[in-house]
Write a protein that binds this DNA or RNA. Structure first.
Lengths: 243, 243
DNA sequence: CGAAGAATTGACCGCATTCAAATGCGGTGG
DNA sequence: CCACCGCATTTGAATGCGGTCAATTCTTCG
Protein backbone atom coordinates (compact mmCIF):
# COMPACT_ATOMS: atom_id res chain seq x y z
CA UNK A 1 0.00 0.00 0.00
CA UNK A 2 1.34 3.36 -1.07
CA UNK A 3 0.13 6.70 0.23
CA UNK A 4 1.52 8.79 -2.59
CA UNK A 5 -0.38 9.10 -5.80
CA UNK A 6 1.35 10.55 -8.82
CA UNK A 7 -1.25 11.87 -11.16
CA UNK A 8 -1.21 10.92 -14.79
CA UNK A 9 -1.85 13.71 -17.26
CA UNK A 10 -3.35 12.45 -20.48
CA UNK A 11 -1.94 15.42 -22.40
CA UNK A 12 -2.85 16.54 -25.91
CA UNK A 13 -3.01 14.44 -29.02
CA UNK A 14 -5.69 11.80 -28.51
CA UNK A 15 -5.81 9.84 -31.74
CA UNK A 16 -8.01 6.95 -32.67
CA UNK A 17 -5.45 4.53 -31.33
CA UNK A 18 -4.32 6.94 -28.67
CA UNK A 19 -3.57 4.18 -26.24
CA UNK A 20 -0.81 2.82 -28.40
CA UNK A 21 0.31 6.09 -29.84
CA UNK A 22 1.28 6.91 -26.28
CA UNK A 23 3.63 3.93 -26.33
CA UNK A 24 3.78 1.13 -23.82
CA UNK A 25 7.31 1.32 -22.55
CA UNK A 26 7.00 5.00 -21.78
CA UNK A 27 3.61 4.57 -20.20
CA UNK A 28 4.83 1.88 -17.82
CA UNK A 29 6.82 4.56 -16.03
CA UNK A 30 5.17 6.76 -13.43
CA UNK A 31 4.91 10.46 -14.15
CA UNK A 32 6.79 11.87 -11.13
CA UNK A 33 6.51 15.45 -12.36
CA UNK A 34 2.75 15.45 -11.89
CA UNK A 35 0.92 16.77 -8.80
CA UNK A 36 0.41 14.49 -5.79
CA UNK A 37 -2.78 13.45 -4.06
CA UNK A 38 -1.71 12.03 -0.70
CA UNK A 39 -5.25 11.13 0.38
CA UNK A 40 -5.59 8.31 -2.09
CA UNK A 41 -5.53 4.56 -1.73
CA UNK A 42 -2.78 3.20 -3.92
CA UNK A 43 -1.73 -0.44 -3.83
CA UNK A 44 1.62 -1.82 -4.95
CA UNK A 45 2.02 -5.20 -6.58
CA UNK A 46 4.97 -7.33 -7.63
CA UNK A 47 5.14 -8.51 -11.27
CA UNK A 48 2.67 -11.20 -12.39
CA UNK A 49 0.37 -10.93 -9.41
CA UNK A 50 -3.39 -11.07 -9.51
CA UNK A 51 -5.24 -7.85 -8.73
CA UNK A 52 -8.78 -9.02 -9.39
CA UNK A 53 -10.04 -12.34 -10.67
CA UNK A 54 -12.78 -12.89 -13.21
CA UNK A 55 -16.02 -13.06 -11.26
CA UNK A 56 -14.72 -11.20 -8.20
CA UNK A 57 -17.09 -8.74 -6.59
CA UNK A 58 -15.71 -5.21 -6.94
CA UNK A 59 -17.17 -1.89 -5.98
CA UNK A 60 -14.09 -0.01 -7.06
CA UNK A 61 -12.52 1.50 -10.13
CA UNK A 62 -8.81 0.89 -10.67
CA UNK A 63 -6.32 3.16 -12.39
CA UNK A 64 -2.78 2.18 -13.32
CA UNK A 65 -0.40 4.66 -11.69
CA UNK A 66 2.80 2.85 -12.55
CA UNK A 67 3.65 -0.30 -14.46
CA UNK A 68 1.64 -2.55 -16.77
CA UNK A 69 -1.49 -4.64 -16.25
CA UNK A 70 -3.04 -7.46 -18.28
CA UNK A 71 -6.79 -7.96 -18.49
CA UNK A 72 -7.72 -11.52 -19.39
CA UNK A 73 -10.57 -13.99 -19.64
CA UNK A 74 -10.45 -17.75 -19.29
CA UNK A 75 -12.57 -20.53 -20.76
CA UNK A 76 -13.49 -23.48 -18.50
CA UNK A 77 -10.97 -25.72 -20.28
CA UNK A 78 -8.11 -23.32 -19.56
CA UNK A 79 -7.81 -21.38 -22.81
CA UNK A 80 -6.81 -17.82 -22.00
CA UNK A 81 -7.33 -14.62 -23.94
CA UNK A 82 -5.54 -11.46 -22.89
CA UNK A 83 -8.12 -8.80 -23.64
CA UNK A 84 -6.10 -5.67 -23.17
CA UNK A 85 -2.64 -4.52 -22.11
CA UNK A 86 -2.88 -1.50 -19.83
CA UNK A 87 -0.29 1.17 -19.15
CA UNK A 88 -0.19 4.24 -16.93
CA UNK A 89 -3.46 6.15 -16.91
CA UNK A 90 -5.55 3.20 -18.09
CA UNK A 91 -8.53 2.13 -16.01
CA UNK A 92 -10.36 -1.11 -15.28
CA UNK A 93 -12.97 -2.58 -12.95
CA UNK A 94 -15.85 -0.83 -14.73
CA UNK A 95 -18.22 -3.69 -15.40
CA UNK A 96 -21.71 -2.39 -14.71
CA UNK A 97 -22.87 -4.94 -12.13
CA UNK A 98 -20.26 -5.10 -9.37
CA UNK A 99 -18.76 -8.35 -10.68
CA UNK A 100 -15.56 -8.16 -12.68
CA UNK A 101 -16.00 -9.61 -16.16
CA UNK A 102 -12.23 -9.94 -16.58
CA UNK A 103 -9.24 -10.86 -14.49
CA UNK A 104 -6.46 -8.31 -13.98
CA UNK A 105 -2.84 -9.26 -13.39
CA UNK A 106 0.24 -7.09 -13.19
CA UNK A 107 2.72 -7.44 -16.01
CA UNK A 108 5.47 -5.55 -14.23
CA UNK A 109 5.84 -4.22 -10.72
CA UNK A 110 2.91 -1.85 -10.53
CA UNK A 111 1.05 0.68 -8.45
CA UNK A 112 -2.71 0.86 -8.77
CA UNK A 113 -5.00 3.62 -7.54
CA UNK A 114 -8.26 2.25 -6.17
CA UNK A 115 -11.31 4.49 -6.18
CA UNK A 116 -14.50 3.56 -4.39
CA UNK A 117 -17.48 3.82 -6.73
CA UNK A 118 -19.08 6.49 -4.57
CA UNK A 119 -15.90 8.55 -4.69
CA UNK A 120 -16.06 8.45 -8.48
CA UNK A 121 -19.70 9.51 -8.38
CA UNK A 122 -18.82 12.41 -6.11
CA UNK A 123 -15.81 13.69 -8.05
CA UNK A 124 -16.72 15.09 -11.51
CA UNK A 125 -13.10 15.65 -12.55
CA UNK A 126 -12.16 12.10 -11.72
CA UNK A 127 -15.23 10.82 -13.54
CA UNK A 128 -14.37 12.84 -16.61
CA UNK A 129 -10.87 11.50 -16.63
CA UNK A 130 -12.06 7.90 -16.28
CA UNK A 131 -14.70 8.41 -18.95
CA UNK A 132 -12.22 9.89 -21.41
CA UNK A 133 -9.72 7.14 -20.82
CA UNK A 134 -12.41 4.51 -21.15
CA UNK A 135 -13.28 5.86 -24.59
CA UNK A 136 -9.65 5.59 -25.69
CA UNK A 137 -9.45 2.05 -24.36
CA UNK A 138 -12.62 1.18 -26.24
CA UNK A 139 -10.92 2.23 -29.48
CA UNK A 140 -8.02 -0.04 -28.62
CA UNK A 141 -10.49 -2.89 -28.14
CA UNK A 142 -11.98 -2.15 -31.56
CA UNK A 143 -8.52 -2.32 -33.13
CA UNK A 144 -7.85 -5.55 -31.33
CA UNK A 145 -11.10 -7.14 -32.48
CA UNK A 146 -10.02 -6.41 -36.04
CA UNK A 147 -6.66 -8.01 -35.35
CA UNK A 148 -8.17 -11.11 -33.73
CA UNK A 149 -10.90 -11.55 -36.32
CA UNK A 150 -9.16 -10.75 -39.56
CA UNK A 151 -5.36 -10.63 -39.40
CA UNK A 152 -2.87 -13.40 -40.19
CA UNK A 153 -0.29 -14.53 -37.63
CA UNK A 154 2.42 -12.47 -39.35
CA UNK A 155 0.21 -9.40 -39.36
CA UNK A 156 -0.71 -9.85 -35.71
CA UNK A 157 2.89 -10.03 -34.59
CA UNK A 158 3.93 -7.10 -36.80
CA UNK A 159 1.00 -5.08 -35.42
CA UNK A 160 1.98 -6.02 -31.89
CA UNK A 161 5.52 -4.78 -32.32
CA UNK A 162 4.32 -1.62 -34.06
CA UNK A 163 2.09 -0.83 -31.09
CA UNK A 164 5.22 -0.64 -28.97
CA UNK A 165 6.68 2.12 -31.11
CA UNK A 166 5.57 5.47 -29.70
CA UNK A 167 3.77 7.74 -32.14
CA UNK A 168 4.00 5.43 -35.12
CA UNK A 169 1.56 3.27 -37.04
CA UNK A 170 -1.62 5.16 -36.14
CA UNK A 171 -3.61 7.54 -38.26
CA UNK A 172 -1.45 10.31 -36.90
CA UNK A 173 1.79 8.59 -37.95
CA UNK A 174 4.17 11.19 -39.33
CA UNK A 175 6.28 8.66 -41.21
CA UNK A 176 10.03 8.26 -40.76
CA UNK A 177 11.75 11.20 -39.10
CA UNK A 178 14.23 12.59 -41.62
CA UNK A 179 15.87 9.46 -42.94
CA UNK A 180 16.64 7.58 -39.74
CA UNK A 181 13.81 5.16 -38.99
CA UNK A 182 15.44 2.83 -36.48
CA UNK A 183 13.90 2.14 -33.07
CA UNK A 184 14.44 -0.21 -30.17
CA UNK A 185 11.45 -1.55 -28.24
CA UNK A 186 11.08 -3.55 -25.05
CA UNK A 187 8.60 -6.38 -25.44
CA UNK A 188 7.89 -6.59 -21.68
CA UNK A 189 5.75 -9.70 -22.23
CA UNK A 190 6.69 -13.38 -22.47
CA UNK A 191 5.95 -15.29 -25.67
CA UNK A 192 3.08 -17.00 -23.90
CA UNK A 193 1.57 -13.66 -22.94
CA UNK A 194 2.01 -12.33 -26.46
CA UNK A 195 0.38 -15.50 -27.80
CA UNK A 196 -2.57 -15.18 -25.43
CA UNK A 197 -2.94 -11.54 -26.41
CA UNK A 198 -2.79 -12.19 -30.15
CA UNK A 199 -5.00 -15.29 -30.14
CA UNK A 200 -2.15 -17.55 -31.28
CA UNK A 201 0.02 -20.30 -29.81
CA UNK A 202 3.45 -19.69 -28.39
CA UNK A 203 5.01 -21.62 -31.27
CA UNK A 204 3.29 -19.55 -33.92
CA UNK A 205 4.42 -16.34 -32.23
CA UNK A 206 7.96 -17.64 -32.06
CA UNK A 207 7.91 -18.61 -35.72
CA UNK A 208 6.59 -15.20 -36.73
CA UNK A 209 9.35 -13.46 -34.77
CA UNK A 210 11.93 -15.73 -36.37
CA UNK A 211 10.57 -15.03 -39.83
CA UNK A 212 10.78 -11.28 -39.19
CA UNK A 213 14.33 -11.70 -37.93
CA UNK A 214 15.36 -13.83 -40.93
CA UNK A 215 13.87 -11.19 -43.25
CA UNK A 216 15.91 -8.49 -41.50
CA UNK A 217 12.78 -6.62 -40.46
CA UNK A 218 13.74 -6.92 -36.80
CA UNK A 219 16.83 -7.95 -34.85
CA UNK A 220 17.18 -9.21 -31.28
CA UNK A 221 19.10 -7.21 -28.75
CA UNK A 222 17.87 -9.55 -26.04
CA UNK A 223 14.99 -12.02 -26.19
CA UNK A 224 12.67 -9.34 -24.91
CA UNK A 225 14.25 -6.36 -26.64
CA UNK A 226 13.94 -5.86 -30.37
CA UNK A 227 15.63 -3.48 -32.78
CA UNK A 228 13.58 -2.30 -35.74
CA UNK A 229 15.91 -0.99 -38.48
CA UNK A 230 13.01 0.48 -40.47
CA UNK A 231 9.73 1.11 -38.69
CA UNK A 232 8.02 1.83 -42.02
CA UNK A 233 9.06 -1.54 -43.39
CA UNK A 234 7.58 -3.29 -40.37
CA UNK A 235 4.43 -1.19 -40.60
CA UNK A 236 3.79 -2.46 -44.14
CA UNK A 237 3.45 -5.97 -42.72
CA UNK A 238 0.68 -5.10 -40.26
CA UNK A 239 -2.15 -5.46 -42.75
CA UNK A 240 -3.37 -2.01 -41.73
CA UNK A 241 -0.95 -0.16 -43.99
CA UNK A 242 -2.42 1.22 -47.21
CA UNK A 243 -0.79 -0.10 -50.42
CA UNK B 1 -35.47 12.99 -39.38
CA UNK B 2 -37.79 12.22 -36.53
CA UNK B 3 -38.77 14.69 -33.82
CA UNK B 4 -40.00 12.11 -31.29
CA UNK B 5 -37.51 10.39 -29.08
CA UNK B 6 -38.64 7.39 -27.12
CA UNK B 7 -36.40 6.98 -24.16
CA UNK B 8 -34.83 3.64 -23.42
CA UNK B 9 -34.80 2.55 -19.82
CA UNK B 10 -31.90 0.27 -19.01
CA UNK B 11 -33.84 -1.24 -16.13
CA UNK B 12 -32.48 -3.46 -13.35
CA UNK B 13 -30.30 -6.51 -13.72
CA UNK B 14 -27.09 -5.45 -15.43
CA UNK B 15 -24.98 -8.56 -15.63
CA UNK B 16 -21.51 -8.98 -17.00
CA UNK B 17 -22.91 -9.68 -20.44
CA UNK B 18 -25.87 -7.43 -19.85
CA UNK B 19 -26.00 -6.40 -23.46
CA UNK B 20 -26.81 -9.89 -24.57
CA UNK B 21 -28.85 -10.86 -21.60
CA UNK B 22 -31.20 -8.12 -22.74
CA UNK B 23 -31.64 -9.98 -26.00
CA UNK B 24 -31.24 -8.59 -29.47
CA UNK B 25 -34.61 -9.19 -31.01
CA UNK B 26 -36.37 -7.51 -28.14
CA UNK B 27 -33.95 -4.65 -28.07
CA UNK B 28 -34.43 -3.85 -31.76
CA UNK B 29 -37.92 -2.67 -30.90
CA UNK B 30 -38.47 0.84 -29.61
CA UNK B 31 -39.78 1.24 -26.11
CA UNK B 32 -42.95 3.22 -26.79
CA UNK B 33 -44.07 3.16 -23.15
CA UNK B 34 -41.16 5.36 -22.09
CA UNK B 35 -41.32 9.15 -21.71
CA UNK B 36 -40.81 11.37 -24.75
CA UNK B 37 -38.26 14.09 -25.35
CA UNK B 38 -39.59 16.09 -28.29
CA UNK B 39 -36.65 18.50 -28.39
CA UNK B 40 -34.21 15.93 -29.63
CA UNK B 41 -32.58 15.33 -32.97
CA UNK B 42 -33.45 11.82 -34.09
CA UNK B 43 -32.55 10.52 -37.55
CA UNK B 44 -34.28 7.63 -39.34
CA UNK B 45 -32.42 5.26 -41.63
CA UNK B 46 -33.44 2.45 -43.95
CA UNK B 47 -31.81 -0.97 -43.46
CA UNK B 48 -28.14 -1.38 -44.41
CA UNK B 49 -27.39 2.31 -44.72
CA UNK B 50 -24.23 4.01 -43.57
CA UNK B 51 -24.53 6.32 -40.55
CA UNK B 52 -20.87 7.18 -40.08
CA UNK B 53 -17.84 5.93 -41.94
CA UNK B 54 -14.51 4.95 -40.43
CA UNK B 55 -12.43 8.12 -40.33
CA UNK B 56 -15.37 10.53 -40.49
CA UNK B 57 -15.15 13.62 -38.33
CA UNK B 58 -17.87 13.50 -35.65
CA UNK B 59 -18.60 15.80 -32.79
CA UNK B 60 -21.66 13.86 -31.75
CA UNK B 61 -22.65 10.87 -29.70
CA UNK B 62 -25.20 8.49 -31.18
CA UNK B 63 -27.76 6.39 -29.35
CA UNK B 64 -29.86 3.68 -30.94
CA UNK B 65 -33.52 4.50 -30.34
CA UNK B 66 -34.98 1.79 -32.54
CA UNK B 67 -33.50 -0.99 -34.67
CA UNK B 68 -30.04 -2.50 -34.93
CA UNK B 69 -26.67 -1.06 -35.89
CA UNK B 70 -23.38 -2.70 -36.88
CA UNK B 71 -20.01 -1.20 -35.99
CA UNK B 72 -17.25 -2.35 -38.29
CA UNK B 73 -13.67 -1.80 -39.33
CA UNK B 74 -12.05 -2.44 -42.70
CA UNK B 75 -8.52 -3.34 -43.72
CA UNK B 76 -7.11 -1.71 -46.87
CA UNK B 77 -7.47 -4.96 -48.83
CA UNK B 78 -11.18 -5.15 -48.04
CA UNK B 79 -11.30 -7.57 -45.13
CA UNK B 80 -14.09 -6.52 -42.79
CA UNK B 81 -14.58 -7.13 -39.10
CA UNK B 82 -17.89 -6.34 -37.47
CA UNK B 83 -16.84 -5.09 -34.06
CA UNK B 84 -20.16 -4.91 -32.29
CA UNK B 85 -23.86 -5.42 -32.91
CA UNK B 86 -25.88 -2.66 -31.26
CA UNK B 87 -29.50 -2.69 -30.14
CA UNK B 88 -31.78 -0.13 -28.54
CA UNK B 89 -30.03 1.90 -25.87
CA UNK B 90 -26.53 1.22 -27.15
CA UNK B 91 -24.28 4.15 -27.96
CA UNK B 92 -21.47 4.87 -30.41
CA UNK B 93 -19.40 7.75 -31.78
CA UNK B 94 -17.33 8.03 -28.61
CA UNK B 95 -13.79 7.91 -29.96
CA UNK B 96 -11.81 10.47 -27.99
CA UNK B 97 -10.48 12.59 -30.85
CA UNK B 98 -13.40 13.66 -33.04
CA UNK B 99 -12.65 11.05 -35.71
CA UNK B 100 -14.68 7.87 -35.76
CA UNK B 101 -12.50 4.80 -35.35
CA UNK B 102 -15.26 2.56 -36.68
CA UNK B 103 -17.94 2.67 -39.33
CA UNK B 104 -21.59 2.38 -38.32
CA UNK B 105 -24.28 0.90 -40.55
CA UNK B 106 -27.89 0.10 -39.83
CA UNK B 107 -28.80 -3.56 -39.73
CA UNK B 108 -32.54 -2.93 -39.80
CA UNK B 109 -34.64 0.17 -40.29
CA UNK B 110 -33.46 2.30 -37.41
CA UNK B 111 -33.85 5.56 -35.55
CA UNK B 112 -30.77 7.14 -34.02
CA UNK B 113 -30.65 9.96 -31.47
CA UNK B 114 -27.79 12.35 -32.15
CA UNK B 115 -26.37 14.34 -29.25
CA UNK B 116 -23.92 17.17 -29.74
CA UNK B 117 -20.86 16.67 -27.56
CA UNK B 118 -21.54 19.90 -25.70
CA UNK B 119 -25.08 18.79 -24.94
CA UNK B 120 -23.65 15.64 -23.39
CA UNK B 121 -21.23 17.72 -21.35
CA UNK B 122 -24.08 19.91 -20.14
CA UNK B 123 -26.50 17.13 -19.21
CA UNK B 124 -25.27 14.99 -16.28
CA UNK B 125 -28.16 12.51 -16.53
CA UNK B 126 -27.51 11.91 -20.19
CA UNK B 127 -23.81 11.52 -19.53
CA UNK B 128 -24.41 9.01 -16.78
CA UNK B 129 -26.65 7.00 -19.02
CA UNK B 130 -24.07 6.99 -21.82
CA UNK B 131 -21.30 6.14 -19.39
CA UNK B 132 -23.22 3.23 -17.90
CA UNK B 133 -24.12 1.87 -21.29
CA UNK B 134 -20.56 2.24 -22.49
CA UNK B 135 -19.39 0.10 -19.61
CA UNK B 136 -21.85 -2.65 -20.54
CA UNK B 137 -20.74 -2.47 -24.17
CA UNK B 138 -17.12 -2.74 -23.08
CA UNK B 139 -17.97 -6.03 -21.34
CA UNK B 140 -19.52 -7.24 -24.58
CA UNK B 141 -16.28 -6.33 -26.37
CA UNK B 142 -14.32 -8.32 -23.81
CA UNK B 143 -16.52 -11.34 -24.41
CA UNK B 144 -16.10 -10.93 -28.12
CA UNK B 145 -12.31 -10.71 -27.91
CA UNK B 146 -12.38 -14.07 -26.13
CA UNK B 147 -14.56 -15.48 -28.88
CA UNK B 148 -12.37 -14.14 -31.69
CA UNK B 149 -9.09 -15.11 -30.08
CA UNK B 150 -9.83 -18.49 -28.58
CA UNK B 151 -13.02 -20.15 -29.79
CA UNK B 152 -13.46 -22.67 -32.62
CA UNK B 153 -15.85 -22.03 -35.50
CA UNK B 154 -18.49 -24.30 -33.92
CA UNK B 155 -18.17 -22.51 -30.59
CA UNK B 156 -18.41 -19.10 -32.23
CA UNK B 157 -21.61 -19.92 -34.05
CA UNK B 158 -23.13 -21.58 -30.98
CA UNK B 159 -22.18 -18.53 -28.90
CA UNK B 160 -23.67 -16.23 -31.53
CA UNK B 161 -27.03 -18.01 -31.47
CA UNK B 162 -27.00 -18.16 -27.68
CA UNK B 163 -26.55 -14.38 -27.55
CA UNK B 164 -29.87 -14.05 -29.32
CA UNK B 165 -31.70 -15.90 -26.57
CA UNK B 166 -32.87 -13.36 -23.97
CA UNK B 167 -31.70 -14.01 -20.42
CA UNK B 168 -29.80 -17.18 -21.18
CA UNK B 169 -26.16 -18.15 -21.37
CA UNK B 170 -24.77 -15.40 -19.13
CA UNK B 171 -23.63 -15.68 -15.54
CA UNK B 172 -27.17 -14.91 -14.51
CA UNK B 173 -28.62 -17.75 -16.58
CA UNK B 174 -31.36 -19.43 -14.60
CA UNK B 175 -31.25 -22.64 -16.61
CA UNK B 176 -34.25 -24.17 -18.37
CA UNK B 177 -37.60 -22.89 -17.19
CA UNK B 178 -39.49 -25.86 -15.76
CA UNK B 179 -38.87 -28.51 -18.38
CA UNK B 180 -39.62 -26.62 -21.57
CA UNK B 181 -36.40 -25.22 -22.99
CA UNK B 182 -37.42 -24.46 -26.57
CA UNK B 183 -36.93 -21.02 -28.09
CA UNK B 184 -37.19 -19.40 -31.49
CA UNK B 185 -34.73 -16.66 -32.45
CA UNK B 186 -34.52 -14.26 -35.38
CA UNK B 187 -31.00 -14.09 -36.79
CA UNK B 188 -31.55 -10.63 -38.33
CA UNK B 189 -28.14 -10.79 -40.02
CA UNK B 190 -27.04 -12.35 -43.32
CA UNK B 191 -24.49 -15.15 -43.33
CA UNK B 192 -21.89 -12.67 -44.56
CA UNK B 193 -22.57 -10.33 -41.65
CA UNK B 194 -22.43 -13.20 -39.17
CA UNK B 195 -19.13 -14.30 -40.73
CA UNK B 196 -17.67 -10.79 -40.49
CA UNK B 197 -18.83 -10.59 -36.89
CA UNK B 198 -17.39 -13.97 -35.88
CA UNK B 199 -14.12 -13.61 -37.77
CA UNK B 200 -14.94 -16.50 -40.13
CA UNK B 201 -15.79 -16.98 -43.80
CA UNK B 202 -19.36 -17.26 -45.00
CA UNK B 203 -18.76 -20.92 -45.94
CA UNK B 204 -17.52 -21.83 -42.48
CA UNK B 205 -20.54 -20.18 -40.89
CA UNK B 206 -22.86 -22.05 -43.21
CA UNK B 207 -21.15 -25.35 -42.45
CA UNK B 208 -21.40 -24.73 -38.71
CA UNK B 209 -25.13 -23.99 -39.01
CA UNK B 210 -25.61 -27.12 -41.10
CA UNK B 211 -23.72 -29.23 -38.57
CA UNK B 212 -25.91 -27.90 -35.76
CA UNK B 213 -29.01 -28.63 -37.83
CA UNK B 214 -27.86 -32.17 -38.66
CA UNK B 215 -27.16 -32.79 -34.97
CA UNK B 216 -30.68 -31.63 -34.12
CA UNK B 217 -29.39 -28.79 -31.96
CA UNK B 218 -31.20 -26.26 -34.09
CA UNK B 219 -33.86 -26.33 -36.81
CA UNK B 220 -34.69 -23.80 -39.49
CA UNK B 221 -38.06 -22.13 -39.52
CA UNK B 222 -36.84 -19.80 -42.23
CA UNK B 223 -33.26 -19.14 -43.35
CA UNK B 224 -33.07 -16.30 -40.85
CA UNK B 225 -35.22 -17.82 -38.11
CA UNK B 226 -33.98 -20.69 -36.00
CA UNK B 227 -35.73 -22.97 -33.52
CA UNK B 228 -33.67 -24.19 -30.59
CA UNK B 229 -35.29 -27.30 -29.08
CA UNK B 230 -32.99 -27.21 -26.03
CA UNK B 231 -31.22 -24.00 -25.18
CA UNK B 232 -29.09 -25.80 -22.60
CA UNK B 233 -27.86 -28.26 -25.18
CA UNK B 234 -26.78 -25.42 -27.46
CA UNK B 235 -25.16 -23.61 -24.55
CA UNK B 236 -22.89 -26.57 -23.90
CA UNK B 237 -21.36 -26.06 -27.35
CA UNK B 238 -20.33 -22.45 -26.76
CA UNK B 239 -17.03 -23.27 -25.06
CA UNK B 240 -18.06 -21.01 -22.18
CA UNK B 241 -20.17 -23.62 -20.47
CA UNK B 242 -18.60 -25.29 -17.44
CA UNK B 243 -18.23 -29.08 -17.69
C1' DC C 1 28.80 -25.25 -13.68
C1' DG C 2 24.35 -27.19 -13.59
C1' DA C 3 19.42 -26.96 -13.32
C1' DA C 4 14.99 -25.07 -14.55
C1' DG C 5 12.32 -22.55 -17.39
C1' DA C 6 11.65 -20.06 -21.74
C1' DA C 7 12.14 -19.91 -26.54
C1' DT C 8 13.06 -21.99 -30.90
C1' DT C 9 12.76 -25.41 -34.39
C1' DG C 10 11.01 -29.51 -36.79
C1' DA C 11 7.51 -32.86 -38.42
C1' DC C 12 2.93 -33.82 -38.87
C1' DC C 13 -2.01 -33.00 -38.50
C1' DG C 14 -6.50 -30.84 -38.67
C1' DC C 15 -9.52 -27.04 -39.05
C1' DA C 16 -10.80 -23.24 -41.54
C1' DT C 17 -10.11 -21.12 -46.04
C1' DT C 18 -10.26 -21.10 -50.95
C1' DC C 19 -12.16 -22.09 -55.22
C1' DA C 20 -15.94 -23.95 -57.58
C1' DA C 21 -20.45 -25.84 -58.37
C1' DA C 22 -25.13 -26.74 -57.04
C1' DT C 23 -29.20 -25.72 -54.59
C1' DG C 24 -32.72 -22.92 -52.52
C1' DC C 25 -35.37 -18.74 -52.11
C1' DG C 26 -37.76 -14.43 -53.17
C1' DG C 27 -39.48 -11.44 -56.46
C1' DT C 28 -41.12 -10.19 -61.22
C1' DG C 29 -43.57 -10.70 -65.22
C1' DG C 30 -45.93 -13.58 -68.59
C1' DC D 1 -50.19 -20.00 -61.26
C1' DC D 2 -45.90 -20.82 -63.00
C1' DA D 3 -41.51 -19.85 -65.38
C1' DC D 4 -37.57 -17.40 -64.91
C1' DC D 5 -33.96 -14.55 -63.00
C1' DG D 6 -30.81 -12.84 -59.47
C1' DC D 7 -28.95 -13.50 -55.23
C1' DA D 8 -28.00 -15.78 -50.89
C1' DT D 9 -26.90 -20.02 -49.07
C1' DT D 10 -25.27 -24.62 -49.09
C1' DT D 11 -22.21 -28.23 -50.35
C1' DG D 12 -17.98 -30.35 -52.23
C1' DA D 13 -12.94 -30.93 -53.00
C1' DA D 14 -8.39 -29.39 -52.36
C1' DT D 15 -5.10 -26.34 -50.19
C1' DG D 16 -2.62 -24.15 -46.59
C1' DC D 17 -2.13 -21.78 -42.26
C1' DG D 18 -1.75 -22.31 -37.70
C1' DG D 19 -2.03 -25.92 -34.05
C1' DT D 20 -0.11 -30.03 -31.77
C1' DC D 21 3.45 -32.83 -30.16
C1' DA D 22 8.18 -33.48 -29.47
C1' DA D 23 13.04 -32.46 -29.40
C1' DT D 24 16.64 -29.05 -29.08
C1' DT D 25 18.77 -24.70 -27.87
C1' DC D 26 19.09 -20.61 -25.32
C1' DT D 27 18.77 -17.84 -20.83
C1' DT D 28 18.82 -17.03 -16.42
C1' DC D 29 20.03 -17.79 -11.93
C1' DG D 30 21.44 -20.38 -7.89
Amino acid sequence: MDAIYTRHDAGPGNFSNAKFDAGWKISFEADEAAPRFPDLRVASYPPRSLIVDEGDATSSVYEVVEGGVLLFKLLPDGRRQIIEVLGVGDVFGLSPNGVSDVGAETLTKARIAIYEKRRVDADPDLRDRIFTRLRAQMCALHDHALLLGRKSAQERVATFIMRLVPGRGGHACAGPIAGCDETRVDLAMTRQEIADYLGLTIETVSRAFSALRRAGTIAYERQDCVVIPSVCQLCRLTGSHAA
